[in-house]
Design a protein around this nucleic acid. Structure first.
Lengths: 190, 190
DNA sequence: CGTGCTCTAGATAGATCGCTCTAGCGGCTA
DNA sequence: TAGCCGCTAGAGCGATCTATCTAGAGCACG
């Protein structure tokens, strides 16, 4: 049975990281949000904020990958799977008043030049996404080199759209990016 | 004649924001980097860090737009202009060890849900980029609606590529994104 | 020279930061 | 029951944060 406190801490941290980033989130705020005692953070994460950060990033990366797999599995074909992922992202943005976008992009930009362990955690998470998407397209019959390019293109479009949607408080960039991702995929399928 | 101190402060702030974000940058660090007295910040920006932040964001947005215009003007046609912008971004990333990417993306993600004045400043900057790119494509004979979609697609690709390049410490995403942007533009030109 | 204004210069306040520390609760086994 | 241990609980430390405050240098103008 998983420890409930450690899960509440990681859930709260992931949500706060996604909304306000790494440096903008204090440990006091995390324990308040998680209704957990302050000491528990250093009991479960003796490495402090940096260890908590890396583990939360890796977990968020896994969970978001699972979301992608779930949507892909529920879609009849690859094109509609990609389209569904973008429209789902747009809906989720609007429902949360443009707060819930990529779970690790904000942290990734913050820490890329300031903390090597945290940067590595974000790079590992992104790599699993790129590899999974590449495999998804390869299984559809696309050559591996092309599949990787389509995967990178799709993910760049997704992350860029997240940025513009949050800043502009509009879902237009996500819808345009989704259409571009579908177009890129269709072109790759010849 | 422009005040040299205020310029040094804004230059240092812009550079630190781009590398470590808004909350990760302290006012003490800014004045140290700018070789300016601490009091000068509150003399020139009585609104404190938030006012300094909004003005730096708006200025960075202007400067980056000028960079785009410069590259576009130096290119023989629209397609090569777009391609040159992406390859230039990739080179600059590699030269700065993946530190210098988008000057406002990091801040934009951090503040989107925490400070309305700062979010508005990032939104205004992004909007000028989208409008300028749209106009650039319209002048090449693309219908306005399509031109806006291509502009948004290109900028989403650029921002997403910045994120992945910085996290992965690789220029591959930028090169792939550049190729995708060119493909999107070519498709729009029929 | 004296006055006033802009800007420099930095000490300092008050709050918050990450982190360490001790104390104690509750459930386990001996 | 006694002893141990995982975990809760939060006070408090030194450092750092933003912001305010006073003091003075430098210059323009009468």
């Amino acid at each position: 049975m998983p420890n409930p406190t450690i899960d509440r801490i990681m859930d709260a941290t992931a949500e706060l990281f996604r909304r306000q980033g790494y440096t903008g989130t204090g440990l006091k705020q995390i324990v308040a949000e998680a209704s957990a005692p302050f000491g528990s953070i250093y009991h479960f994460f003796p490495g402090g904020k940096e260890q908590l950060g890396t583990e939360v990033i890796r977990r968020s990366g896994r969970l978001y990958l699972e979301l992608f797999i779930t949507i892909a599995a529920a879609s009849p074909d690859v094109v509609s799977g990609v389209a569904a992922f973008f429209t789902g992202a747009a809906e989720h943005l609007r429902e949360t008043d443009y707060a819930d976008a990529c779970p690790i992009a904000t942290v990734a930009l913050e820490v890329a030049s300031t903390s090597e362990p945290l940067r590595q955690a974000t790079a590992d998470a992104f790599t699993t996404w790129i590899d999974a998407a590449t495999e998804y397209f390869v299984m559809d019959g696309i050559a591996r080199t092309t599949a990787r390019e389509v995967a990178l293109t799709m993910l760049c479009l997704l992350e860029g759209a997240f940025l513009f949607c949050r800043s502009l408080k509009s879902t237009e960039p996500m819808h345009v990016a989704g259409a571009a991702a579908v177009a890129s995929l269709r072109a790759a399928k010849g």
